[in-house]
Amino acid sequence: MDPMNANDPRVHIMRSQLGRARGLGAAKTGVGHWWAQRVTAIFLLPLCLYFVGSVLALEGADRARMAAYLGEPWNAVLFLLLTGALFYHLALGLQVVVEDYVHKESSKLTTLLVLNGLIIFCALACAVSVLKLAL
């Protein structure tokens, strides 16, 4: 086919096959996000059940009982683990959602920065609160 044909939708890229393969090849880091999402998901399965159980145990509790509950080292550790896995999983998940629907580069970057900032803020607030109640 004549590459100059106006009806030919192909784009003719002056690039060798090797160059193209290098340009499109694996960066070796692409699966990091995927793995982190799965690993945090697996961590969150038991942690969520623990959290649901804790909420039922603390239903209607006053602050003293809550402090006593988190004063148990195991509970404090599990709440800290929950905080870490939960907010990390959330950051990874929301990143995918934003990248799927926000196409303009500047808006995408801004949205991701704001969301990640908010997530880190909430994660730190939770962790510090748990530590303050526990210690």
Binding site: R63, C126, V130
Partner: peptide, 10 residues
């Protein structure tokens, strides 16, 4: 909500 709950408790 979780953050609000924990921060309030602290």
């Amino acid at each position: 909500l979780l953050t609000l709950w924990l921060v309030a408790a602290a």
